[in-house]
């Protein structure tokens, strides 16, 4: 059973955990992201009261488990990241997770691309739209995106060309992508 569940996507696991109250599916989902949770929480450990690993991780898992039952989760990684940040910031426990507008726009475009995976004409149409949106971006954003996605440059290479740090390079790429997504979504709304 566990072996079969590991092959399921995040969405399917969340659905099983919520609808069927499948504890195993919930466990598989937590295990899938456990290494990332451990890594992100490492700087936070032993930084204050009740921050021992034996307390932090179980409480985090408990919090995630509770929020899984009630909240809409389009992307598991964003939901986990939000919950970890909320736990570390000791903010109100009940503040729910809502995906941002940018995140939803990206999600929609990703779904469109996924749907067009087997349809060449749709792929062409989408590619044309993306190219036009790229042209509308600033030169730097367009350059970074083209270099990264079309020319397959790595973060390090891109950072080196402009003498930026990897973090900044990633941030520029992220923002450029977000702008492009907003442009494309605005086109569809118009």
């Amino acid at each position: 059973m566990l072996q079969q569940l590991t092959n399921l996507s995040d969405k399917e696991l969340i659905s099983r955990a919520r609808k069927l109250k499948d504890q195993e599916a919930e466990g598989i989902l937590m295990e899938r992201y456990s290494h990332l949770m451990v890594a992100v929480c490492l700087p936070y450990l032993n930084s204050g009261p009740a921050t021992a690993p034996e307390e932090v991780y179980p409480s985090l898992l408990q919090r995630l488990s509770e929020s899984l039952k009630t909240q809409t989760i389009p992307k598991a990684n964003e939901w986990i990241h939000y919950t970890i940040r909320a736990a570390q910031a000791r903010t109100a426990n009940n503040s729910p997770f809502f995906p941002s507008t940018e995140s939803r726009e990206l999600q929609q475009l990703e779904n469109n691309v996924e749907k067009a995976a087997t349809n060449l004409k749709e792929q062409q149409l989408l590619a044309g739209r993306f190219t036009r949106a790229l042209d509308k971006l600033t030169a730097e954003d367009s350059h970074f995106l083209r270099e990264f996605y079309v020319n397959n440059k790595s973060f390090a290479e891109l950072a080196e060309t402009r003498k930026y740090s990897v973090v900044k390079t990633r941030q520029i790429l992220q923002q450029a992508k977000q702008k492009m997504a907003s442009l494309l979504m605005n086109e569809t709304y118009e």
Binding site: R32, Y33, H35, L36, N77, L106, L109, E110, N112, V113, E114, A116, Q123, Q124, L126, A127, F130, T131, L134, L145, Y149, V150, N152, K177, M180, A181
Partner: peptide, 16 residues
């Protein structure tokens, strides 16, 4: 080129 441009909005799983 089309495929590469479409990669911009392709969904990729988290690092395992």
């Amino acid at each position: 080129n089309n495929e590469k441009i479409l990669k911009i909005f392709s969904n990729i799983r988290c690092l395992n």
